[in-house]
Design a protein around this nucleic acid. Structure first.
Lengths: 95, 95
DNA sequence: TAAGTATTTAGATATTTGTCTAAATATATA
DNA sequence: TATATATTTAGACAAATATCTAAATACTTA
């Protein structure tokens, strides 16, 4: 959970996640959306991957990045422990 | 949202939030749960208050801290944008 | 093989962050 | 009023972080 919160503690990285909601993108495509250098974006992608918020797959010259919703679900559970309304609902995490 | 993620990017601060699930506590009570100095905990509480994840109220010598679930709800919505299952559910944030 | 494109790695640097001690402020009580 | 308790503020410092440029690696294509 530490790496997840660390990864989310940066506007650029959160924006990268939102970009990838639309579908997978290459490192270059992602970098083109920001004003930072490619190495900087590469580093942000690395931190997001360390947190397992996204996965990467190499195809030829390109590296495609995708959202990993598994970790998002864990984060969601963590946040929900603080929302009384959700805690009462039997449908979600009622243990 | 920036201040929220910043506040959550620290294990001690996340632990403080979990402590307060049980009910309101004074700054001193909170500090007693950790190995850090009181000024350090006071600083953590300040960051959590800046993020509006908790509120404080002075009663006599004591300052009581409480969870503020309003911001937690916003955080929950932010996280949910990445979970397809929740997005499909008509009961929550279906716009 | 040589040249071009895509991406990451390495190393440097300025800024931010978490922690501490000492001191200040505010309240309670003898 | 003087002393004790609760909490925060101020200032210092080491560690972590975000960014950059230059170089390295990997793949494609002429």
């Amino acid at each position: 959970m530490n790496t997840v919160f660390k990864a989310l503690n940066d506007k650029t990285r959160r924006d990268i996640l939102e970009l990838l909601k639309d579908g997978d993108k290459t490192a270059g495509d992602i970098a083109d959306h920001f004003q930072f250098s490619k190495p900087t974006i590469s580093h942000h992608l690395d931190l997001l991957r360390q947190a397992e918020l996204l996965t990467s797959e190499k195809k030829g010259q390109f590296v495609y990045y995708s959202l990993n919703t598994t970790v998002v679900d864990e984060l969601l559970k963590w946040v929900m422990q603080f929302t009384p309304s959700f805690n009462q609902s039997p449908a979600y995490e009622n243990k």
